[in-house]
Design a protein around this nucleic acid. Sequence first.
DNA 1: CTCCAGTAGTTGACTAGGAAACTATATCGA
DNA 2: TCGATATAGTTTCCTAGTCAACTACTGGAG
Lengths: 152, 152
Amino acid sequence: MPTRPASDLTTHLGYWLRFVFNHVSQAFARKVEAQGVTVAEWVLMRQLLDEEALAPSILAARMGMTRGAISRLADRLIAKSLLLRAADPEDGRAQTLALTPTGRALVPGLAALADANDAEFFAHLTSDDRAALFRILRGIVEQRGLASPPVD
Amino acid sequence: MPTRPASDLTTHLGYWLRFVFNHVSQAFARKVEAQGVTVAEWVLMRQLLDEEALAPSILAARMGMTRGAISRLADRLIAKSLLLRAADPEDGRAQTLALTPTGRALVPGLAALADANDAEFFAHLTSDDRAALFRILRGIVEQRGLASPPVD
DNA sequence: CTCCAGTAGTTGACTAGGAAACTATATCGA
DNA sequence: TCGATATAGTTTCCTAGTCAACTACTGGAG
């Protein structure tokens, strides 16, 4: 016996945000996984593309994951020969992560998949709507001072 | 040595969608978890609020999760005495899931948290922007014929 | 110098979900 | 009415995160 109506979830912008985001991200996951790479792996590799090498802790902060997660994620990429881990010559505690040539060669193709995925979901919008969506989302980020886009 | 620029991720609407969504959903997760409930548990309970009882397979479809995940999620809610599982009298294979009175009593408070969370992230927008965001997101859902909002 | 608080990274224990195998029941067709 | 096939739910195994404990190193205060 239903009690009182408890506000309709579908009136929440968060509901629709989740709905759209989940489809966008699952579609992208299928695309990159067809290339043998997970989304998290892609994000890490993309970070390294224009950086030569980065410390795991920097990647953790940028990707919004724990250092532990980055440690294991790096292990998986190393096992696939897409990444190299090396001791930092200047700090005995630190490690550096860098793409292998194979890893680096893989990134542009994955970036193309990211472009294709974005187009798949947003290209049909009018350019006004695309601009509005862009502006509103960025506005939320700025207004609330959000940082470090989490991967999860 | 950075190679070619591989399109900037931040030009992707999917990037900003993820960014905003992750913050919205993590903020909500913190709120409901302070009440001893996970987001998935809340979503399941909310589904049952206006339904009396539902089959696990229906919940799986509505929540975009596998039947296996629903089976375990139900176990957890049952362990918290928020849910009851009963054999369907009309089909020996089927089960029905229903809120306990305790579970039912918990939902409105959680719904209020959902309202508060939505307000926290979207209330500062102009009403035009809120309407535009709503219209654009729903448009994407409809234009692409998306269904069953996945929880993950 | 030496010690000690702080930092970098890894690891173990745990959680939550997916895929697929499995059990039990239902339904359809000959 | 019996057997084949389909369906509902559970369970096993796996993946990928978190949190917190741990190891090793650094760098400053005395």
